[in-house]
Write a protein that binds this DNA or RNA. Structure first.
Lengths: 349, 349
DNA sequence: GATTATCGTGCAAACGATTGCAGGCGCTCG
DNA sequence: CGAGCGCCTGCAATCGTTTGCACGATAATC
């Protein structure tokens, strides 16, 4: 037997057959081509020798790597690890492996990553990096199966699995409205991301839904879903003299930024201003105050994205793709409280 | 030209040379074997055609995949993403890619992961999953270059990069002692992990260092570095009637568990009990109260681990390996306060 | 009993790159 | 002027699998 890892020909020799026969006997799909008891013999030999196929050689021949590229803007954002877990779990069940790449939100790093993935022959790609109008990904999508997660591009050319953002912010503003808030601000996320734009739009709609008229002076856009941008946005709102008693932030990170801005100005949450976030990131219940936010099913989104992708890979390439939108749920914690006016009234009564 | 991705022979044809020549011209290492201006021609042709080598085919021949396996217990633990970033960045600079696997702290899942990695021909492995006495990894280490991160095995057979745990907990108890605390508890991590055992030992030493005698009744061991275990440990301490005014937790997650246990029992941090954590995980400054903890250089640890590993791969296999231990720093926030006794005295004066 | 279908297996050519070996050419040097 | 030496470059084998094709044997058909 040759040295090093055992290979197909070793098994063949041991079983007294040709390597090709071993190959056929070992694959579920081609097993029927070989006599049942030779198959048994081969299987036994493979078992005894502890044969494991060399995936490199296999890939070279078949052009499939059983590898899925996962493009993330930033693994450090607590939003993503649970999604990745979901993705990995679903992929593993199908014998696939995830290859994770951070893009830092830089288009060129994304380009480089896509390139790497493509040349490494990933069988498909799950991207969380898409900007709303993303030519790069759209182009890449023509070359390999792709699905988006937590993002969406303008013309639904790429299937996506997303949380029900509209419902989420609706629940948020209804909650605020029910608490008596009438002047509600929006510390919005970047508008070049679908999540940012969708939530902003949903915010406007939800406000009208509860009979409030949107006020442009109560809306400020951040340039990223980050703490700094959240703080900056809130500061600029306050700076401009806007008056409001509650705000909904683009996501939890921005909400945390708002916390910072608030304490910096000696304001209290929720006494002066109620804030609600988005995502229910890990430890959102441990913040000061515990953050009211809308919970999205991170893990489930990951699973669904992976399953969707696998379906497109294995499948006939059809399933033209309704986006999958998963339900969300408002988690009420201590960062929201009745509006001051109502508290005053209650105190008076 | 053949269809699909451009390959070596396409470039060869275009440049009017043999594929072998192209191969040599394209590799920095072998370029000197080919005439300077043919090399130019080849380079130009490759550029025009947009040639990118097929790493699968290359790997098959060279037995190198330029892939590094990264074994994590749990990507969802906020400790790890920054490390992964460090690893990825350092690897990318050298043209390597990281393959991330979660083991969920299950030895068999780790085994499966290692197996996958090995058969996928990873060139090396960075593991954060090692238990103190880890036969599995020790064995795997004989088959491929490996370095440990944030973990250590008993007999230093595998090089590791770790934070200076001893110094960290020393700083923590000195801080507490300086605040006047005399009865300091330890909500320790699992002892089968090096981090758990080291910190426990360091705790004992540090206590004596400030002239306090360790009391076994003030120490409780968790079975995992988790919130639940932190809460459970603290509960059992309190249940047993232990009296103390401060505690150092095995890590930040356990500290958060302590927060939970404290509020559940109507105790206040830091008024009744000061707590200090370990790791300075993201958002530790946002907790209620902001957590005093010791900061470890996550990102840097990742980088160093990757660099160390690459050195072992490229290099002569020497560097027998002192462990790399990186400095840590106590970050004082609001979860620690002067001991009640001292506060009383201050109030009296 | 000759002819055709059926089944099981081996042969050999891929996949796309790397690399030892050999050979052609032009020099120099004795 | 011929032997010898360097420098380039082409040839062909190789990495470990998969897979179309052909071949031989056995079974089914008329």
């Amino acid at each position: 037997m040759s040295p090093g890892p055992v290979k197909l020909s070793d098994v063949a020799e041991r079983a007294g057959v040709h390597p090709a026969t071993v190959s056929r006997a070992l694959s579920e799909r081609t097993r029927h081509m070989v006599n049942t008891d030779t198959a048994q013999r081969v299987l036994a030999a493979a078992e005894e020798l502890g044969y494991t196929p060399n995936p490199i050689a296999r890939s070279l021949k078949t052009n499939r790597s059983f590898t899925i590229a996962v493009l993330l803007p930033d693994l450090t954002n607590p939003l993503f690890p649970p999604m990745v877990r979901g993705i990995e779990d679903a992929l593993a069940e199908a014998g696939f492996t995830a290859l994770i790449a951070n893009t830092d939100n830089h288009p060129d790093r994304a380009l480089a990553a896509v390139e790497t993935m493509r040349t490494r022959l990933a069988d498909g790609c799950i991207a969380a990096t898409a900007t709303r109008d993303d030519g790069l990904l759209a182009e890449a999508a023509t070359e390999m199966p792709m699905v988006l997660i937590n993002r969406r591009v303008l013309n639904h050319e790429i299937p996506a699995v997303v949380a029900d953002d509209r419902s989420g912010v609706r629940q948020a503003v209804e909650h605020l409205a029910a608490l008596g808030h009438e002047r509600i601000a929006h510390v919005a996320g970047p508008q070049w991301l679908a999540t940012g734009a969708d939530r902003h739009e949903a915010f406007l709609a939800a406000l009208r839904g509860v009979g409030l008229e949107p006020d442009p002076h109560l809306i400020s856009f951040g340039e990223g879903f980050t703490e700094e941008q959240g703080a900056r946005s809130l500061h600029s709102l306050l700076e401009a003299g806007a008056k409001f008693t509650a705000l909904v932030a683009g996501n939890d990170l921005m909400a945390l930024g708002c916390y910072d801005a608030l304490v910096e100005r000696g304001l209290s949450c929720p006494d002066d201003i109620s804030v609600v976030g988005f995502n229910d990131m890990p430890f959102a219940d441990k913040f000061n105050p515990p953050l009211t936010t809308v919970r999205i099913p991170h893990y489930e989104m990951g699973r669904r994205a992976a399953e969707l992708l696998l379906g497109r890979i294995e499948g006939d390439g059809s399933t033209p793709g309704e986006d999958i939108v998963l339900p969300v749920e408002l988690i009420q914690r201590a960062s929201t409280a009745p509006a001051p006016s109502r508290r005053a009234r209650q105190a008076a009564s």
